[in-house]
Amino acid sequence: MADFFKSVRFKIILAITALLTGAMIYSVTTGGFSTTSSYVFEMVFAPVKAASSRLSDRIRRSLDMMMNAEKYYDENRQLKEQIAALYGQMADYDKLVTENGDLRTMLELHEEHEDYRFSPPCTVIARSTNDPFASFTVDKGADDGIEPGDPVITQNGIIGVCSEVSPGTCKVRTIFHPKTSIGAYTVRTKTEGLISGGYDMSADGKVKFEHIDKDADIEPGDIVLTSGSENFPASQLVGVVESVDIETNGLSKYAMVTPAADPRTVQGVFVVIDYSIDEVTAVKNAAKAEGDAP
């Protein structure tokens, strides 16, 4: 054994160790942007991750079809019944006109966020193994204009932020992660607070809406939106309040919120690579003015 420690081979192992340690130290000193070693690392592993993701999706789909054939048969029958009922409802033309009006309102809301600049649609290519906070990797990166800290959203609501970016991939830290704190408010009473995650909540698929004033009017069913900051755009849907309770210190309230978009099951996301800060201020002022009104 002593001969091995004196051999050239052992010196090679020492050299590789020094190289890897140097790369690690360099990695931790860069703020979010992947280092050259990480670039190479992600370049090598991104195609493997994407291929394995596609393979597992195909296997899962096939297994699902085989195992749940009876369930799908029943669902199909139910859906056919529903379609028949919907044909009847189609006669109600007036209702459709009203719905059309609602859709126009939604469109106006969309136009309010014209300042958003989105990345190309991103696909989830890998999920971190055994990560209690459900972080994942998407197939778009710095080459598509994504930077560390950019918000990640879906049509349903917010998902998290980009934590590390390489040219072709981006790691997403979800809202379940304790490090992801987002300012938020309730639509009904404009109650402000902070959205944050934790292990307990992420296991149940919930986030905590904390630092709420003890006397604030907040109840289950309230809708929670982001209040906006330099790090996160305003008026993005976070979720719905499930329960409200007083903190153990008795000084403030907290609420458990079910996110509108579940990061554990999401398959495709958008990264907001640019948005106007003025928009955030305008929304904040409007919310404040509405809250102050008698």
Binding site: T17, F41, S128, T129
Partner: peptide
Amino acid sequence: GMVCGLFLDSAYNMLPGLSAVILMW
């Protein structure tokens, strides 16, 4: 060990090289 460690770093989204050094030794 080093190659397994690099794969492990990728799977866990850990600092590239950390598992590689541990598993190599």
